[in-house]
Amino acid sequence: MPEPISGPTHEPLPEPIPGPTREPVPGPATGSALEMRGVTAGYDRRAPVLHGASLTVGDGEAVGLLGPSGCGKSTLARVAALLHRPRAGTVRLAGRMAYGFRHRAPRELRTTVGVVFQQPRLAADPRLTLADLIAEPLRATGRRAEAPGRLPALAASVGLGGDLLARRPHEVSDGQLQRACLARALVLRPRLLICDEMTAMLDASTTAALVAAVEEYRREHGTALLAVGHDRVLLERWCDRTVDFGALLPR
């Protein structure tokens, strides 16, 4: 790979995405939770994985994005979470235009999206206890004081309790770790939750438990959901509507 997956790149930006300026976030916080228009992105300049994809997730809506492995749906999810800079196209979160990606995205825009990844082992810092893992976003945003009040209820809502919270990732099962990762994604009360193959590694019962936890939380907080996966039966059961990845691309 000539260009690392992460980190800033240095070629001139395509027009719709202005450079990293430090002006206040434009636009009101209304409208769709996520609006992507004509997004082209990839890891190799010559062969983008995504070509002109568009997708809208309404406020409070649950959208399932279906596609075979390697089709680019995870890249789309990363762009939507402002974790990967597209070559072209626009991303709006809660009506606000994204004008930077990764660290260049303003913190309050980044944190409107919570992300759960496919492999909890890779998505969890192995040195943190589950409690610290869940509270990490609060610490990172200077809201450490809220942790004692919020953590027990949030952990319980994803089915974690007792001494599990004091353990480190290598001392819990994949399912338990994924529950903690879900709680971490929800701890800042995002407007949009992105679950990228959240249950692909998990057994049927844990899958059902995690989906139930997400749905319980969404009922309470009205969070929008973008669930990315390949299991049609699962996503049709889970989401308000499902979209085939191919349908996002221009004809």
Partner: peptide, 15 residues
């Protein structure tokens, strides 16, 4: 740096 947990930290607002 390319581990998902760094992505998760960025998404969680880490500087």
């Amino acid at each position: 740096r390319s581990r998902p947990y760094v992505d998760a930290a960025i998404s969680g607002g880490a500087s």
